[in-house]
Design a protein around this nucleic acid. Structure first.
Length: 280
DNA sequence: ATGATGTCCTGGGCGC
DNA sequence: TGCGCCCAGGACATCA
């Protein structure tokens, strides 16, 4: 399920193939995603050139030369792949196909249809409902201990759930929330406002580290995620705790008889993995 | 204001 | 083998 690193990977790949290309056509077979794709979508993007491709939270953005931007979210099962027009055979859940100058296709496939495709004025993108209430980007300079203190001071929910809240910080999904808390040595059950300054610093450091590592590894894959060229990501092999219930944690020196390995609990309705010995 | 819960959606994996 | 059930997930709506 695409989190920040996966979108970063998608964005990097799309930049290699689709930057400065003109959109020749847009074909939509199913408008019913998490949000309905606007009726005007095809008309608004056809014959426009893609002038900038970037990531914003868990979305990637295709900025066009006509003042519009396409906002794209992959939900949890969505993939975008680059295919060539002459070999393309439509798959069951291909919902959107953009053809660009030169015959390359950008194919969006999403079995579970949790994704989203929308269009807005580029100048107003920060006011779009997807972004206007968002917190900071994890790689932004201002993502520091003071910022986190301010955001968490009134929050009594567990820190694991708080990390998934885009109003606090964007881009962290269920996998990297568990991973970051493990490396920070903080229990996912801790009340958000109970973290000390030292812990907040450690948490920020861990978040940046796990995201950065995942980006360098090309995004992770549980079962759904594929890089745009079809190659499956591989960072899941090095998850420390996510999906590792009952196993030893990395470099484990815990009393395994006592801890019985990595634990799984549900927090905020989401599965969470942690080591009772290393996370306090 | 905050948080808890439900909703969207489908395929894969499981138990019987 | 096949059926029913549960789970995965991000964002948002709707309650208390």
């Amino acid at each position: 399920m695409p989190e920040l690193p996966e979108i970063e990977t998608v964005k990097n790949y799309l930049n290699k193939v689709f930057l400065n290309k003109e959109i020749i056509s847009a074909k939509i077979t199913n408008r019913r995603l998490r949000k309905l794709i606007p009726d005007s979508f095809e008309k608004e993007i056809t014959n426009a050139e893609i002038v900038k491709i970037y990531r914003k939270a868990k979305y990637f953005i295709l900025e066009l030369d006509n003042g519009k931007s396409i906002i794209w979210h992959l939900g949890m099962s969505g993939t975008v792949e680059n295919k060539s027009k002459k070999n393309y055979q439509k798959l069951k859940h291909d919902h959107v196909v953009l053809e660009v100058d030169g015959g390359e296709l950008l194919v969006y496939n999403d079995a579970r249809r949790f994704g989203m495709v929308d269009i807005c004025e580029s100048a107003e993108i920060n006011q779009h409902s997807c972004f206007r209430d968002n917190g900071i980007e994890p790689f932004e300079k201002g993502f520091d201990e003071k910022y986190l203190k301010e955001k968490l001071k009134s929050k009594r929910i567990n820190i694991k759930t708080a990390l998934l809240d885009p109003k606090v910080v964007v881009g962290i999904g269920n996998i990297y929330a568990s991973e970051a808390l493990y490396y920070a040595g903080i229990s996912p059950f801790r009340e958000s406002n109970s973290l000390t300054k030292v812990e907040r610093n450690k948490l920020i450091e861990s978040i940046v580290m796990v995201l950065d590592r995942a980006i360098k590894a090309g995004g992770s894959s549980i079962r759904d995620y594929k890089k745009p060229d079809g190659e499956v990501g591989y960072f899941s092999l090095s998850h420390a705790v996510y999906g590792k219930e009952g196993q030893k944690c990395p470099n484990c020196n815990c009393d395994f008889e006592k801890t019985e390995g990595i634990k799984k609990s549900f927090l905020g309705g989401r599965s969470s993995f942690y080591c009772v010995s290393k996370q306090k």
